[in-house]
């Protein structure tokens, strides 16, 4: 369970670092975020929701059945968009209306 940070997209704002409940994300010498302790990620996706550059993706470790899909979120006001990039290049998008309750 961990995250992957795309260095080319990261702008070094530090929002992910500020919010991580495990203090696991740091800035490197080039002022880009990196996960210093990847095995310690809880998979809470807090950092992903903070990232305005969509630079962080969350994936399942191979030891828990991960097959390479990576998910990030896009904040569109009332809508939180979850975008899954599949290994074959396809995408799947799920939209959550923040004003709508779960049905179950």
């Amino acid at each position: 369970m961990s995250i992957a940070i795309n260095k080319n997209k990261c702008v070094g704002c530090g929002r992910c670092m500020d919010v991580c409940p495990g203090s696991l994300i740091k800035l490197d010498g080039e002022n880009r975020a990196f996960i210093k302790y990847p095995k310690d990620c809880w998979g809470c996706t807090s950092c992903i929701k903070e990232c305005r550059s969509y630079a962080i993706g969350f994936f399942l470790g191979a030891d828990m059945g991960g097959t390479g899909s990576i998910v990030h979120t896009e904040d569109e006001g009332d809508i939180l968009k979850w975008v899954v990039d599949m290994p074959d290049g396809s995408k799947m998008v799920m939209e959550i209306d923040r004003n709508e309750s779960n049905k179950y």
Partner: peptide, 24 residues
């Protein structure tokens, strides 16, 4: 419809489960 609601419900609490369903 139930399935889609379930997948959304998990995104709001334990997104790894939804990711597992989608990716597999």
């Amino acid at each position: 419809a139930t399935e889609e609601s379930l997948m959304k419900a998990y995104l709001n609490m334990a997104p790894s489960q939804t990711l597992k369903w989608i990716s597999s």
